[in-house]
Write a protein that binds this DNA or RNA. Structure first.
Length: 370
DNA sequence: GAGTTTGAAACT
DNA sequence: CAGTTTCAAACTC
């Protein structure tokens, strides 16, 4: 940018794209810095504030932008670095996995119900989480599971309503809906009508001995792929159940044939669980060189009515060469126990009625660039 | 294309 | 840190 002329109208006429001049003519290599996905039209921020989507994503502006008075280019690299340093003084993590951070921090949509591109989660192609403060969330990639952020218990009821109306056109992930990528054998559930795409209505076992295994066949190409992705690829499994006292989910694992080898893909821990879906950054980041550890059991303790929990299945980071073939299936097995081991006597068997059913909702979050 | 709405970022 | 202003993008007409 040549100068901060107070009269921007003068600049707009002839050469209103300052970065274009600088990038294209003086710094042809800058296009490799910007992946081309970012375009901005900044007029006042000089593209050195987070208002600017290029700056926000850590890129220099490029030819696709139509910004004015742009500083965010190779030509002004030193100045940009200085500005970034100043920003980092205030927020050391300002430039770390910005998109992830945004997703982690969640959106605050109040009016758009997370259905428009205003929603930062939707823009990133991910569902809203408990971290979001949205109201009336209808994010197509996954609605905010926190009832308190969604007008009472409407969110939970919506899930159950959707679940009970088999064949409903509503889906929380289009890929899952379109391909019915979660399949449960009839003999596992006894009634295939209980299955509605990503919503699974499973009877809660009445005692530990009877605790069944539920098998889920999940096609990898419909699930966030387990390869390295800076946005991570959490699979969030949310469960809700009325009047839960105690329960434990164990033996949740994935098993797939992988490049001709039968191998378990296991992280340590294999999945991440936190009642509040804690910050994604706290999830251990498994390197592909690390040996996957045996799965540990994870407690899943809920109390009270309308209790709600969620856990994230964190895929390991694998190199792109280790990606599965499209269509390759992952078998997930979920073992429900009606009580927590080693925490006092088992509660008495509970009746197998509607109120005691365990409701599962699978949110497959596709964080890959669209 | 102009004007409005929206929500994040910046500011006070 | 809550409220306000600024900003750029999304949206509407």
């Amino acid at each position: 940018m040549a100068s901060s002329s107070g009269n921007m109208n003068e600049e707009e006429g002839a050469s209103d794209n300052n970065h274009g001049d600088l990038n294209k003519e003086n710094n042809p290599s800058s296009s490799s810095i910007n992946d081309g996905n970012c375009r901005c039209t900044c007029k006042k921020s000089k593209c050195v504030k987070f208002y600017c989507r290029c700056f926000n994503s850590g890129n220099f502006c490029n030819d696709s932008c139509s910004c004015k008075n742009c500083l965010n280019n190779e030509e002004n690299k030193d100045a940009v670095e200085e500005i970034k340093k100043n920003i980092q003084l205030r927020d050391p993590e300002a430039f770390e996995s910005k998109n992830l951070a945004r997703t982690r921090n969640g959106c605050h949509c109040r009016k758009s119900e997370c259905t428009l591109q205003y929603c930062v989660c939707k823009r990133n192609g991910v569902g809203c989480t408990l971290n979001c403060l949205c109201e009336g969330c209808k994010n197509e990639y996954g609605i905010n599971p926190n009832p308190n952020h969604n007008n009472g218990s409407k969110n939970v009821e919506t899930i159950m309503d959707n679940e009970s109306s088999s064949g409903s056109s509503q889906s929380y992930h289009p890929a899952v809906h379109a391909n019915s990528s979660i399949q449960l054998p009839d003999d596992e559930l006894g009634n295939s009508n209980n299955v509605n795409n990503n919503n699974i209505h499973m009877p809660m076992p009445t005692n530990p001995v009877d605790s069944p295994y539920y098998n889920f066949l999940v096609h990898q190409n419909h699930v966030a792929a387990p390869y390295y992705d800076p946005l991570l690829t959490p699979v969030q499994i949310q469960s809700s159940r009325n009047n839960i006292t105690e329960m434990q989910i164990t033996d949740l694992f994935e098993d797939t044939n992988w490049q001709g080898q039968s191998s378990f893909l296991r992280t340590n821990p294999p999945f991440y669980y936190d009642n509040n879906v804690a910050e994604l950054s706290s999830i251990p980041r498994i390197q592909s060189s690390q040996q996957y550890q045996p799965i540990q059991s994870h407690g899943f303790h809920q109390q009270g009515e309308e209790s709600f929990g969620a856990m994230n299945l964190q895929y390991p980071f694998l190199s792109s060469s280790q990606q599965p073939n499209n269509g390759e299936a992952t078998n997930m097995q979920l073992h429900l126990h009606p009580h927590l081991h080693g925490h006092g006597p088992s509660p008495p068997p509970t009746p197998d009625n509607e109120e005691n059913h365990h409701h599962m909702m699978f949110l497959w979050q596709n964080n890959r660039p669209q």
